[in-house]
């Protein structure tokens, strides 16, 4: 059986599915970052906006991923783009929550001293607040990335391709080989995403903060 699984993994169909899976995940994460980070910077200007963004995103996190993908179907139809949009929607809340919390918890005294040193609001954001919030922001990216890679498996149900297609084929044909040829790479992909982003998170922590870098809001 291992031989047959390996054969499937070496096939063109597998490479295509893997390519789709990676493209879907990477684009969804990228677009979500481009939306969530500026939004977090924006809402961090006001405690009320920040509170609303965090709470709405928390409710958003409770929405099942299959529900988000399935709801894309009646409105947007089948294919890669609807899947990408659904995965992006799914990817935003964890990033937004962590970035908003991270930026909010930068001590006011630090921001004050930066202002006293003559830094502009923009400089304070990019040189002080984002670096200090970086570990928390990267924790959010990690949660989001793992969730996107996992949920991209479901894109196959709305015609978005990806490695889920192999698993579905395996389940429909009752073929353990196809099931495993999809399932094992998907699991490895999710685990390496988790480990990769954990490493990024450590690297993103400014040197001066490394000792106290154990804060990681969920």
């Amino acid at each position: 059986m291992a031989g047959r699984v390996w054969e499937i993994i070496q096939s063109d169909a597998f490479s295509r599915a893997l390519g789709e899976h990676l493209r879907l995940s990477a684009w969804a994460l990228l677009v979500a970052i481009l939306i969530a980070l500026p939004l977090a910077a924006l809402v961090s200007q006001s405690p009320l906006a920040s509170f609303l963004a965090i709470n709405i995103s928390n409710v958003g996190r409770a929405v099942p991923s299959l529900a988000i993908l399935a709801l894309a179907l009646p409105f947007l139809g089948l294919g890669f783009r609807p899947s990408l949009l659904a995965l992006t929607v799914l990817a935003i809340p964890p990033i937004l929550i962590n970035a908003a919390i991270g930026l909010r918890e930068v001590p006011a005294s630090v921001v004050e001293s930066a202002r006293g040193m003559g830094l502009s609001t923009g400089q304070i954001l990019t040189r002080i607040r984002f670096p200090i919030a970086a570990p928390v922001i990267f924790a959010g990216l990690r949660t989001s990335a793992v969730q996107v890679v996992a949920s991209a498996t479901l894109a196959t149900f709305i015609g978005g391709g990806g490695l889920g297609g192999l698993i579905v084929r395996g389940l429909q044909r009752n073929s353990p080989e196809y099931q495993l040829a999809g399932a094992i790479p998907v699991a490895l992909l999710a685990i390496s995403t988790e480990l990769g982003f954990a490493a990024l998170q450590r690297l993103a922590t400014p040197k001066g903060l490394r000792i106290s870098s154990r804060t990681r809001p969920a």
């Binding site: 996992a150 949920s151 498996t153 099931q179 495993l180 399932a183 699991a187 988790e194």
Partner: peptide
């Protein structure tokens, strides 16, 4: 338990079924 948590669900189901657990 962290590794288990990270395995995507469809993949987890498929692995269990491929080792002979009936759907």
């Amino acid at each position: 338990t962290g590794v288990l948590y990270t395995i995507p669900s469809l993949s987890f189901f498929a692995m269990l079924i491929s080792i002979g657990i009936p759907i």
